[in-house]
């Protein structure tokens, strides 16, 4: 058993790991076997993460966060969580390998998963012209015609990225205005390769072995049209990945995990949540990182409130050491400082 397990390795998970490791909690990070580093692993240039005035490649940023966490003693496992038992004082995490890890506290930072269009032909054509990753697949559409479905930041980022390869990029959106940030909108509107198709929803994807076109339905008058193209990039948002905690943690109506005010405290003691899985609104790398900080500090305070004997068991020491005592005292004092202004 150990003190803290962090599930997830995006900006929230790794930032929580940096703080927890510096607080000497020796966190174990379950990073996922193929999706470690999170959503930024599928992006190219990140221009809005503070501290990188020239921008930084998404995968490079995540590798740096990982190294920073490891530098302070975080242990990282590249495996997936198969099952999670958060009900007791000791939390149990079962991995894909079958190994079981136990901890007194868990930070849940699993992010979100891409939303699908929900068309029957979508999965059959996935990989044959239907894609969720422009940076992975864009290069295969050199001199081709493609469509990006969606109207948010990621849709516009993908559309702009795809103009490097494709001759024409349609941006298909079901409304007549975009949600994306002003900077991204300006760039896309100025791009001669991007054509905007407003108020249309994808009703069908055509193609037997590979995509040959899409059928669109007008969201205003219901009229139907088709577009001939070779690639469809779906960027219609993402849903919080909560399937492992259903029935164990309370959710809010938006589908994210419920937390207490501005804290990361979930409906179960010792379980903290951070990043996109608690955020129905902002969903930025920097907000996720900040949310990871909150979770690490909350977990630290929680652990300090537990009986010293329990911590001694978790850290594998037979007796309550001076270090544990000192840390608990320090955490109580800092909590008192935080609480003081409102008292």
């Amino acid at each position: 058993m150990r003190e803290l397990i962090i599930i997830g390795s995006g900006p929230a998970g790794y930032t929580a790991a940096i703080y927890a490791a510096r607080a000497n909690l020796r966190p174990l990070v379950i990073a996922s076997s193929v999706e470690f580093g999170g959503e930024l692993m599928k992006t190219t240039e990140v221009e809005n993460f503070p501290g990188f005035p020239e921008g930084i490649m998404g995968p490079d940023l995540m590798t740096r966060m990982q190294q920073q966490a490891e530098r302070f003693g975080a242990e990282i496992l590249y495996d997936d969580v198969a099952a999670l038992d958060l009900t007791g004082e000791v939390k149990r995490v079962t991995l894909g390998s079958g190994d079981v890890h136990e901890a007194l506290a868990v930070i849940y930072a699993t992010g979100s998963a891409y939303r699908k269009l929900g068309l029957p032909e979508e999965s059959a054509l996935s990989g044959y012209g239907v894609s969720w990753c422009a940076t992975c697949d864009g290069a295969f559409f050199r001199k081709k015609t493609v469509a990006v479905i969606g109207g948010g930041d990621s849709a516009l980022e993908e559309a702009t990225f795809l103009t490097r390869f494709a001759d024409t990029v349609y941006l298909v959106h079901r409304r007549d205005a975009l949600r994306a940030s002003a900077a991204l909108q300006e760039r896309a509107f100025a791009d001669p390769k991007i054509q905007f198709i407003w108020n249309k929803e994808v009703a069908r994807i055509y193609g037997d072995e590979k995509v040959t076109g899409i059928g669109l339905t007008d969201t205003v008058d219901g009229s139907e049209t088709t577009l001939d193209l070779q690639g469809v990039f779906v960027a219609i948002g993402a849903d919080p990945r909560t399937h492992l905690v259903h029935g164990q943690l309370d959710l809010i109506p938006e589908g994210t995990i419920a937390v207490d005010g501005r804290s990361s405290r979930t409906s179960r003691p010792g379980v903290f949540a951070a990043g996109d899985v608690v955020d129905p609104t902002y969903k930025q790398a920097a907000t996720a990182a900040g949310s990871g900080v909150v979770a690490a500090l909350d977990a630290e305070h929680y652990l300090a409130s537990l009986p010293a004997e329990l911590i001694a068991r978790a850290t594998g020491t037979d007796a309550v050491t001076d270090e544990i005592e000192a840390r608990a005292r320090e955490a109580r004092e800092s909590e008192a400082r935080v609480a003081a202004p409102t008292a």
């Binding site: 193929v34 599928k42 995968p59 992975c136």
Partner: peptide
Amino acid sequence: WAEWCGPCRAVSPI
């Protein structure tokens, strides 16, 4: 696979 494909690098050791 390709160098620039993150998921390719992730699945390679598997």
